[in-house]
């Protein structure tokens, strides 16, 4: 089962794709303005989430998985680096 974070990423990407496609099709300026703001809000949320959660998580998991000494549970198998 995918995590909540993964589903939220998918929802964000789908919303961005939908808005990218329908924005050029809408002629009424007020509706266009609202949808543009929605697009920027979703994009902002996704970038903020990427900068504050996803990127630090990736860096941390890279650092901690790269050094055997950082592993809290030592495996019995021979360690190869």
């Amino acid at each position: 089962m995918a995590s909540l974070d993964r589903y939220l990423h998918i929802i964000g990407i789908e919303l961005l794709l939908i808005l990218t496609i329908i924005l050029p099709l809408i002629d009424r300026p007020p509706a266009k303005r609202v949808l543009s703001k929605l697009f920027l809000t979703v994009l902002g949320f996704m970038l903020a989430h990427f900068a504050t959660h996803a990127l630090p998580d990736k860096l941390a998991s890279f650092i901690y998985s790269s050094q055997h000494a950082y592993h809290s549970l030592k495996s019995q198998a021979p360690h190869r680096t």
Binding site: E14, L15, I18, I22
Partner: peptide
């Protein structure tokens, strides 16, 4: 579960995206 709701919403948006 929140993940069930999020999964269903993501699936629905995928279907709507296909209509485009």
């Amino acid at each position: 579960a929140l993940s069930t709701i999020a999964g269903a919403v993501a699936a629905c948006l995928a279907v709507s995206l296909c209509s485009l």
